[in-house]
Design a protein around this nucleic acid. Sequence first.
DNA 1: GGTAGACCTGGACGC
DNA 2: GCGTCCAGGTCTACC
Length: 302
Amino acid sequence: MIEFHLPARQPFSFYSAVRSHGWYQLAPFIWDEPRRELGYLTRLSSGKVVVLRLRQAPGGVYLAALPELTVQERDELSGVVDWMLGLQMDFSAFYALAAQEPKLRHMVERSLGRVLRSPTLFEDVVRTILTTNTLWAATKRMTAALIEQFGDPLAEELPAEFEHLAHPLRRAFPTPQRLAESDEQTLRSQTRLGYRAPYILGLARAVASGELDLEALKNSHLPTPELRKRLLAIKGVGGYAVAVLLMILGRYDSIPVDSWALKSVSNEWYDGQPVGKAEVKAAFAQWGEWQGLAYWFWDWKE
DNA sequence: GGTAGACCTGGACGC
DNA sequence: GCGTCCAGGTCTACC
């Protein structure tokens, strides 16, 4: 086992970052609430599948990993975890505003703002497509099915201290290459992705062939409208999904309006009367470049 | 630019 | 056990 610490820009709350949205409930993430530890399996560029155990440490994050790593693999893994938890992200400008708003003050108190990400944007786009037009239980099922059928397995047995933190599937999220080798019929009939199957397959093939360089968008300096345009060009990514992905990429000037957003805004400001997308957008427009964050972490009435 | 209808799955419900 | 209905975003065709 290899152990080390990674520093985070302060203020930082590991718990707030992990619990920022539902990703921690999706395979191959696994969350231990009593210990406040996050487990995850990832495939490094060398092809090695690694189990991670993460928790808060003074000044940042404690990271333990199995199996043993080379120096290069350790460096790669540090970068992966840094990205997943947004360790270097700076919210000070937003916090100065949020501190003045009673419904957002808890963000400052709890160091909220970071959104848990997958190691690759490919993985996050797939996850996001699997959240659309379906129930959360189905998202969990489809994600697990993809990993079970196409993910690379862990090579070795786990010691007891890792058992509870490695997802039972013991596999990493599938690579675009592995999914690209599949076919629509398999994804429909065995993985039960339904009409999403051609979207996932098309995306995997575009990334695997090099036609689409998704990972280059992670630290892109493209203006948000251009970034939005590129993400919307992906079949299966519409208005809601693109807003989620922009949040993940640290662009907060749009709001992922789904049925939950409509209900929440209705309860918060319209006495339960039905509202549309326009009302949701209007409710947070004053937060400008931060509106996505304000919406995401708003202290809703219920 | 706006809108209707189709796309799928799984759970809830009624019979 | 079977059939029907429903929730959940995005796409395409059409206006």
